[in-house]
Amino acid sequence: MNFIRFYEICTLMRTAANLKTGESAIIDHFSDSEVSLKLMEMGCLPGEKIRLERIAPFGDPAAFWVSGYCLLLRLEEARTIILDESKVYN
């Protein structure tokens, strides 16, 4: 996971973990192939809109609204969802 973080910082890519509460964005791709398969099965597909609903009191996990339902992800999982910066939602 540290490597992914490093990679994120170097490339300045925003991930689902960087969203602010209530903020929406479009999923672009994933940085971890194994986690991505599970995420896609759960409805987090590239091109899908994702919104951060709320963060747990200790900052982790977080609840996301995606493809019609509320999905709980740990931050290390959310961090593998890379967002599409060209399309910004509010």
Binding site: E34, K38, M42, P61, C70, L71, L72, L73, R74
Partner: peptide, 11 residues
């Protein structure tokens, strides 16, 4: 087993 936390927060 690779553990995922991912779960639905049902209404």
């Amino acid at each position: 087993e690779k553990g995922f936390f991912m779960m639905e927060l049902p209404v």
